[in-house]
């Protein structure tokens, strides 16, 4: 059991507290088990809580983000054993142990990658610090960095540059390189290609895929709006809507048989390659995303859902496990199970 899961959240509620003491319920009662191994995708509307959840899984919880309830676990091989796994409750871990895990076993490519580097520090100096404080050989890490930056198509003098001397996409690739430098086991990549052209996207995705295939990175959880990409590469999908995980399942299952009405509409919103606006105007999902300060009662999708029933407006739908690993949070599926 434990060996199949790399990270787990139980009844997780991560809220932001606004200055007027109102909460933004960005992650609101999430139960997930992130399967171990391979390329996984977390997708959902802008503002649905993906970044919050991603940071939460690494226990990067700092005010104004607060944890209202729930537990976050990281599961890894016990040191010195090849079969045994240990489940670590990140909350109870002392700060220095957490620091030792971060960047080394658990790593993040943040969404703000373009703004993630210290403006007065050269890229090389920062990498030196990262290596030094994790007790690594500085020269070895610098060499590895150079090698990987080359794979990412960055210029050879990159270590000597300041962040502002790089274009937006170059900064993003630099951060991809730095976050994977110490070969983390579990990598969360939050929009790692948002500023790259399609070719560079392939380069970065191939870079990450190769790390995964070589088992250098064991599990890659990627958050992205580039749906095509995730559909092409990932094996497992998690869909988020309004602070909830509304559907999970293998990529094939979700693609061929989306269950949740939101998933259906979401997948339909992908514009086919080569279509033209004069011929066919593609439309986004009608309606507005929920205001997470005052989410609608019942199912959070009901105001936009074409199938909404009476109960949807009153009661939050339960999570239905249709098959092992295949879950959906929608009233439509309650009967199917029973």
């Amino acid at each position: 059991m434990a060996r199949d899961i790399v990270s787990k959240a139980q009844d997780l509620r991560l809220y932001y507290i606004l200055p007027n003491n109102i909460y933004v319920k960005a992650v609101d009662g999430v139960n997930i088990e992130i399967p171990r191994g391979g390329f996984l995708g977390l997708v959902g509307e802008s503002g649905s809580g993906k970044t919050t959840l991603a940071e939460g899984l690494l226990y990067l919880i700092d005010p104004p983000m607060i944890k209202i309830s729930g537990k976050i676990f990281y599961i890894r091989k016990r040191e010195g054993s090849s079969t045994e796994y240990e489940t670590i409750d990140l909350e109870t871990l002392p700060q220095h142990r957490l620091d030792q895990l971060r960047g080394v076993e658990l790593s993040l490519i943040p969404q703000y990658a373009m703004d993630a580097l210290n403006p007065t520090m050269k890229i090389g100096s920062f990498i030196k610090d990262v290596a030094r404080y994790h007790g690594r050989d500085v020269d070895e890490i610098l060499n590895r960095a150079l090698e990987r930056f080359k794979l990412l198509g960055l210029p050879s003098d990159i270590l000597n540059r300041y962040p502002h001397e790089l274009s937006g996409g170059m900064r993003q690739r630099t951060v991809v390189g730095i976050s994977t430098l110490l070969n983390p086991k579990f990598l969360v990549a939050d929009e790692p290609v948002s500023n790259l052209d399609v070719v560079q996207q392939h380069i970065v995705i191939d870079f990450l895929t190769e790390l995964v295939e070589k088992k250098i990175v064991e599990t890659l959880l990627m958050v992205t709006h580039d749906l095509h990409l995730i559909l092409e590469k990932s094996r497992y999908l998690l869909l988020m809507y309004g602070g909830h995980i509304v559907e999970t399942g293998s990529k094939e299952e979700v693609w061929s048989e989306p269950l949740h009405p939101y998933t259906k509409m979401f997948l339909e919103s992908i514009p086919p390659v080569g279509s033209r606006i004069e011929e066919k105007r593609i439309r986004g999902i009608p309606g507005n995303p929920p205001d997470l300060r005052y989410p609608p009662p019942g199912c959070r999708f009901h105001p936009r859902c074409p199938f909404a029933m009476d109960i949807c407006r009153r009661k939050e739908p339960p999570e239905i496990e249709v098959r092992p690993g295949r879950k959906v949070k929608c009233w439509l599926f309650v009967d199917r199970k029973v």
Binding site: D99, R102, G103, P110, Y112, N118, V130, S179
Partner: peptide, 19 residues
């Protein structure tokens, strides 16, 4: 943001303070 990132990479508090 660079501080958040440095923290996510596990750099200890004193290094963040230095930055």
């Amino acid at each position: 943001n660079y501080m958040k990132y440095s923290k996510a990479l596990g750099l200890p508090q004193r290094v963040l303070g230095r930055y």
